[in-house]
Amino acid sequence: MIIPLSIAVLVTGGVYLLLQRGMVRIIFGLALISHAANLMLLLAGVSAWRGEPLPDRVDPALATDPLPHAFVLTAIVIAFAVTVLMLALAVIGHNDDTKRMPATGEERAT
């Protein structure tokens, strides 16, 4: 019941930021939404079992479902890559939070 609440809070904040002007806020919004997605994935492994998935140290009967964890680990790193790429796009020209579109330097063929 508590983690769904966290997801609700994260999605609310994420969507709100996604609807703002300016690349940086949109990036922040996407970061929040990807947090929410990760938590959702982890919940799929039923949070009643919370032991670390290390069978030599933790009783496998108590261990958590390792598959969502593997998914989330992958997702975290991909979200990082996407964030970095979008930050690079945000930095082109000093145009963040303005109404002007960044010039690309391309010139129309004559």
Partner: peptide, 9 residues
Amino acid sequence: AGAAAGLGA
């Protein structure tokens, strides 16, 4: 959106 996501979860 947040309410829907939380409810779904």
